[in-house]
């Protein structure tokens, strides 16, 4: 009994706070959902910061209804990954290119100082050929925020209301595998986050269940594929009838294939790829010991 209490106390002492920044409802889940689920499963507390309102990502719903459903479904997906809280910044989807980068950075910095995360997940703004540029802009803002959150002269009013500076010790830069050079080590291991692969074999089913919660987005993906194929005289037998079952199957294929791509060359069955900056980041190797 004494041992059990000791174990619980040890685990509780090690529990971390994880802040996940995502541009939209699906990106964090598809690129990093398994790793986030692994962390919450071991007792970490996770918070999701969703930057846009996903008002455009549906097949045939109005912007209001699209935003409403995607908001609810994102919250459900986050819950399935063990994320305890979702905060939506509410920017209009697809329009981050017109938002002040400093404004966005400072809003993310607010939440970094508020929650003082040990781990920050952010869209990798340096990943190339990412189609949805909201992810790029949100990633740039989050990367800057992780830096400025630690600096006293950024947003002095924050300190006036009790939001003290904070250094986040671990950064996971995530992106779906668009960039053909994503596995190449960057120029210097000291000052540039390096490629890292995370085994998600034990969490794959949970990631799939979470992805299935994004019903509106998954349906839109299926309909767009079917529409494109139809317009060029083709069909995908799976999508001859687009219903809950066929959309779910397509979603599962998507998540499993991404996990397989992440695992390629690693010895894992299922994995996710990141660029990672750990506690030693920024410390030249000769000083690390």
């Amino acid at each position: 009994m004494r041992l059990l209490i000791l174990l619980i106390l040890t685990l509780a002492a090690q529990a971390r706070t994880v802040l996940v920044v995502t541009a939209d409802a699906s990106d964090f889940l598809l690129a990093a959902g398994g790793t986030i689920a692994s962390m919450t499963a071991r007792g970490d507390t996770a918070i999701l910061l969703r930057v846009t309102n996903d008002e455009k990502n549906s097949w045939d719903l109005s912007p209001d209804e699209t935003a409403r459903r995607n908001g609810l479904e994102c919250a459900e997906a986050a819950k399935l990954l063990g994320i305890g809280k979702v905060v939506s910044l509410g920017y209009r989807e697809g329009e981050l290119g017109g938002v002040s980068p400093t404004e966005l950075r400072d809003r993310i910095m607010f939440y970094i100082r508020l929650h003082k995360p040990d781990v920050l997940f952010l869209p990798n703004p340096h990943a190339e050929y990412v189609e949805v540029l909201d992810r790029h802009y949100a990633g740039l803002a989050a990367e800057e925020a992780s830096h400025t959150a630690a600096l006293r002269n950024h947003q002095p009013p924050f300190a006036q209301v009790g939001l003290e500076t904070h250094v986040t010790r671990e950064l996971y830069y995530y992106a779906q595998p668009f960039d053909p050079r994503r596995r190449e080590p960057e120029s210097t291991a000291t000052f540039v986050p390096q490629p890292k692969v995370s085994d998600i074999g034990a969490m794959l089913d949970r990631k799939i269940r979470a992805a299935l919660a994004l019903k509106t987005i998954n349906h839109a993906v299926a309909m767009r594929i079917r529409d494109r194929l139809e317009s060029t005289g083709r069909r995908l037998p799976l999508l001859d009838t687009v219903n809950d079952a066929s959309v779910a199957k397509l979603t599962e294929i998507n998540v499993r294939t991404l996990a397989g791509t992440g695992a390629k060359g690693t010895g894992f069955q299922s994995a996710e790829e990141f660029h990672y900056a750990g506690p030693d980041f920024g410390v030249p190797s000769k000083f690390r010991k």
Partner: peptide
Amino acid sequence: YINEFAHLPGLESYIQKNAVKR
């Protein structure tokens, strides 16, 4: 070159493999 399904890295190969003529 970016092809018609390159924006779906988890589905591109499945679609290319399984799509058939109507």
